[in-house]
Structure formats: structure tokens, C-alpha cells
Design a binder for these strands. Structure first.
Lengths: 211, 211
DNA sequence: GTCTATACTACGATAGAC
DNA sequence: GTCTATCGTAGTATAGAC
């Protein structure tokens, strides 16, 4: 179906070049169809862009669903379980972020972070927001600190440790002396982040009970 | 001078809209000059883009210079001093990243991270690379672990905690329930990151000397 | 449903007037 | 040095043929 081919290529092109950088002519050509097929199926470039956002949100939803569904079942007083769930979500997030074929999707989202449009609402309003809120709740439990603002700020610094590899990819690759991100590197990163997370929560626990 | 006005506006426009999104016509109009002035002063759109990158690199250099010059003087065995220097660099980095008027520059760099061009070489090859290398050295000292690869990976997770507020700005603002990043928030973030950094290095130290 | 034609706008580059 | 005028290219949208 021309519809699906166009959507596929649109995600790639919009992620790679952005809304303005991508051209409907080249998207249509790559899909082996006429440019006006975009008008027909999606109403225009803008509609195609939003359809791409919806598709990305849906795919992200599938990928993260089980990991964060489980986290909702966790008891509000079980700090160890909450921390384990944080490790699980962050690990899965890292995997999905760096997975082959996820580059276009990630870049699409990074672009929207800079210049949020309606497309960002569709992505954040879906599973992304739910995942982050679930993470905040787990952080509150795992830290034993009910203060919401502090939990949210800590959550930001946690996800930053994973996201940096996508959002600042070029710098990271140079700093690590690599040409690309392979699965061994992702595993190393996950281990490093997990150790950091443990260290941070241990430190918070220690400061709560001085002796 | 038309040259400087064009450069100023170019940084803003390229940062906001990207190389393809920005138009030489509107940049020239905003600078109150004819479009062909860009050709005259910079040789064309591409030249203007590279000049913008050079200007950003130079400005970043000034801003971070003292903070990281001092770090080079630190003794290779003084773990406490190295950790203090890490705090100083990261704090200054956070300030500069979130400072009023730095948005365009930050966005310019984030875009280059996704799709590095010659402009990225000019920025990274300047002070950015030096700052990151200085950080790696400090991390190696502060952690008491001479392994270079481990130090680089840890460095990545450290800067990620700061950069996330720019690179994933929209998500962070939503998660924090804010409309904008004010200086109070930056101070909170700096304190949180500093605590995280301490916790991580304490944990590493503890694992090295089990008793 | 899909493609061809075409209309219209905006882009970047350049030549030449001042 | 700076601006005006213009060229060629590429963008989106639309109407209508198949």
C-alpha cells in the first residue's frame, strides 16, 4: 500500500532532515509514487508529519508497555522493588533508544524537543508522558522522599544519563573514540547507569538515617 | 556593521530553524540589508552557517576558559581536588547552557549533534573537545581508576545529567510542570547533579576499599 | 484510489548598477 | 561595499484524467 510506504519513508526523512529539510517530492519518489499521493492520503506535508508522530508514539507504546505496566503494580513502600523497576525501565529505554532502526524515530523526537509542535503533544501525550510519570512515582518510592518536585528533578538527571547518547550523539562518539554505537557499548552504558542509580539512591538513604 | 548584524541574526535563525529551515532572505531582511550582502560577506548560505559555528565556538571558549584552565593544574593524585574541579566545570557548564540568550547557540549545537557537518568539527575541535577531555582526566583522577574507557563512559553519563535540560527541553519542562527554565531551577539542577556526582564517586571509592 | 498537469510561491545565486 | 533585478530550481497544492 502506498500509504504505508509513504509513512515509513516519511519517518526516516523527517527524522533525518526535519520538517523543513525533508521534501515531499523526494519522499514520494522514494516510495515509488506521485507526490500528490501525499495530499491524497495525508492532506499534505503537515498531515504526513503528524501521522509520522502518531506512528512513532504508537511504536514507543508497544515497546515500553510491559516494562512500565509492571511498575504500576509495585507497592508504595517497597523501596527495593521500586529501584529494581527503575533499572528495568531505564534498561529497556536504553535498548529501544539505541536499537537498529530507531535512529529516525529518536531524531524525530529530539527535533520536537527543540521546537515542540502539535506532533510533540501526540508523542508526549501518549506513552512517553506515562512512562516518565511512572518513573517519577518509582523514584519517589525508591528514594523514600515524598517531595514531588525533588523526585521530578532527580528523574530528569536519571534519564539524561541515557538520552545523552542520542541527543548528543556526535560528541559522545568522539569522546568515546567510536564510529558508531554498538550493542556492547549500550550494555556498558546500561551497567554504568545502573551503578550510578544505585549509588545515588544509596546516598539518599544514608543521608536519611545518619546512623 | 552589516557583517556583525547578519552573523548575530544568523545564529538565532540557524539555531531556531536549522540550516535548511532558515532562509537567507529573512536573515537579510531582519538585518536590514539586502540578501546579496550575505554573498558578499560570507560567500553564501553555507559560509554564513560556518561563520556562525565559529562564532559559537569562540564564545563557548571564552565562557569556559578559566574553569577548565584551572583544572589542568590539578595534581594527578589529588582526588578531592579533581572532584571539586568537576563540580566547578559542570556548574559553569549548566549556567552557560541555560543562560538567557544561549538558546540559539545550544540549539545550533544540538542540531549538529544529530547531523554533524563541518560546523561540528569547528565547534568540537575548539573548546568543546578540550573541555570534555579535561573532564575525562578529572574523572579518572577523582575515581582513582586509570582505565580510560571507563572514565569516558562515566563522563558521558555525568554531562548527560546537565545537557538533558537543553536537549530534551520540552519533555523536561512538562515533567517539571514548568513553562520555562528560570535560574532557580538551574540552581536546583546544579545541586542535584552535584549530589549525584558525589554519590557516584563515593560509591566507586567504597568499592575499591571494601573495609 | 492513484497519477499527470499545472499553478504559484519561495529559495539561493549571480550579474551589474550605484 | 551595498542594493536591484533576474535566473533557475524546488517547494506545496490543486484540478482533473485514468
Amino acid at each position: 500500500m502506498a500509504h504505508d510506504r509513504l509513512l515509513d519513508i516519511a519517518i526516516r526523512e523527517f527524522g533525518l532532515r526535519g520538517l523543513e529539510g525533508a521534501s515531499t517530492r523526494s519522499i514520494a519518489a522514494a516510495a515509488g509514487t506521485a507526490m500528490s499521493a501525499i495530499t491524497y492520503h495525508f492532506g499534505g506535508k503537515e498531515g504526513l508529519y503528524l501521522a509520522a508522530a502518531d506512528h512513532i508514539a504508537a511504536q514507543m507504546g508497544e515497546d515500553m508497555e510491559t516494562a512500565f505496566d509492571q511498575s504500576l503494580l509495585i507497592d508504595g513502600r517497597d523501596r527495593a522493588a521500586a529501584r529494581a523497576a527503575i533499572h528495568a525501565i531505564m534498561g529497556r529505554f536504553a535498548d529501544k533508544l539505541m536499537e537498529d532502526g530507531s535512529e529516525s524515530r529518536s531524531l524525530f523526537i529530539v527535533r520536537e524537543q527543540m521546537h515542540p509542535t502539535e506532533a510533540f503533544d501526540r508523542i508526549y501525550g501518549g506513552v512517553m508522558g506515562q512512562m516518565l510519570e511512572a518513573l517519577v512515582r518509582l523514584v519517589r518510592i525508591a528514594s523514600g522522599d515524598d517531595d514531588d518536585a525533588r523526585a521530578r528533578l532527580l528523574t530528569v538527571t536519571l534519564i539524561g544519563q541515557v538520552i545523552v547518547l542520542r541527543a548528543s550523539r556526535a560528541s559522545c562518539l568522539r569522546l568515546l573514540g567510536r564510529k558508531a554505537v554498538d550493542s556492547a557499548l549500550v550494555d556498558d552504558l546500561k551497567a554504568r547507569v545502573a551503578a550510578n542509580v544505585d549509588a545515588i539512591f544509596e546516598s539518599i538513604s544514608a543521608s536519611q538515617e545518619p546512623r
